[in-house]
């Protein structure tokens, strides 16, 4: 009994005098759940490798992406095959340019399009949706009707027009994709905001006299970042697909720049000459990256919303 008492005494003393205990935030919980999800974790590794490849790959390239290997020109199906001897690890394209360097460059551009598109969506869409949802009433109606109208315009049409009028450039592509990407995000965020703003902790902040914009940034946005993160990871492949489609139509990035869509388009057009590698290498990177993004998005959703499983 005495020993037990002493132990309790020691324990309570430790409780009082102990160092500050580090709390376990909801983010930490979520990341633990995410890393336990094997598919999502593996996808994260694959994606990291793809990104690393675009940075490290150029150091191993023998040919730059613009150089034409005159020795293979005209005999691409026989001399342009992938080989280590010629330095064309992924073979050459129809014009004798090194496919390895071009795939690296296409990957960079496509990932950039996806990430910048999703980034704009996250920044603009989150802010726009949170403001509309939080203030509600007429402001909400006006802001969301604007979104509805913009969504009603066939955006592919606008995008193509933009690229025709202002010329085909990567910048225009970013502008065009950025213009439309945030609309869906704004809707989702607004819906979430509506449910969060009626929670008691928001009321508590209001009673304390916290400024509305401070409430949005301090209480509303951190609580909807989970949804935003999931939606953003699913937006990235969507953006990449859009860009690929535009490039496939021949309207996307301009030579000598390239992207997955442009490479796949070229590869597909020469498939009858037996140069299958021109299609398969870009397609491989395209497919594994998109798969990874989808699996990561899925894993994030499970991790951030454990109740929904």
């Amino acid at each position: 009994m005495a020993i037990a008492d002493q132990k309790v005494q020691e324990f309570s003393e430790r409780l009082v005098t102990a160092e500050e205990i580090k709390g376990r935030s909801l983010w930490q919980d979520a990341s633990r759940r995410f890393f336990r999800n094997k598919a999502a974790f593996a996808s994260l590794i694959v994606l990291t490798l793809v990104v690393l490849f675009t940075f490290v790959g150029p150091y191993f390239a023998v040919w730059s992406n613009e150089e034409i290997d005159w020795s293979v020109l005209g005999q691409v199906p026989t001399k342009g095959v992938p080989s280590f001897e010629s330095g064309h690890f992924f073979g050459t394209d129809d014009l004798g340019r090194d496919l390895y360097s071009r795939v690296i460059q296409g990957t960079q551009i496509s990932l950039l399009v996806g990430i910048i598109g999703a980034g704009i969506a996250v920044l603009v869409g989150t802010f726009y949706g949170a403001v509309a949802g939080y203030f509600g009433g007429r402001i909400d109606s006006a802001m969301m009707r604007t979104v509805d109208i913009l969504l009603a315009i066939p955006y592919m049409f606008i995008l193509i027009l933009l690229l025709m009028v202002f010329g085909r450039s990567v910048l225009m592509l970013f502008v065009g994709i950025g213009l439309v990407s945030w609309l869906g995000m704004a809707r989702i965020v607004r819906g979430q905001t509506l449910s969060i703003k009626n929670k008691e902790f928001v009321e508590a902040a209001l009673v304390t006299g916290v400024h509305p914009f401070t409430i949005i940034f301090r209480h509303i946005v951190p609580n909807l970042l989970g949804v935003v993160a999931v939606y953003a990871t699913l937006l990235v492949p969507e953006m990449i697909l859009t860009e690929s489609f535009i490039s496939f139509l021949g309207l996307g990035v301009q030579e000598p720049n390239t992207s997955w869509g442009a490479l796949i388009s070229q590869g597909a057009s020469t498939i009858q000459y037996g140069t299958l590698w021109q299609l398969l290498f870009p397609l491989f990177f395209f497919v594994i990256s998109l798969f990874s993004f989808y699996f990561i998005g899925d894993g994030l959703r499970d991790a951030l919303d454990p109740k929904d499983r």
Binding site: L26, F201, A204, V207, T208, G209, N223
Partner: peptide, 19 residues
Amino acid sequence: RREIQMIFQDPLASLDPRM
């Protein structure tokens, strides 16, 4: 607002889970 404060019914819901 500084002089009048409030305590709420649902203890957990009145605290921001991310803070």
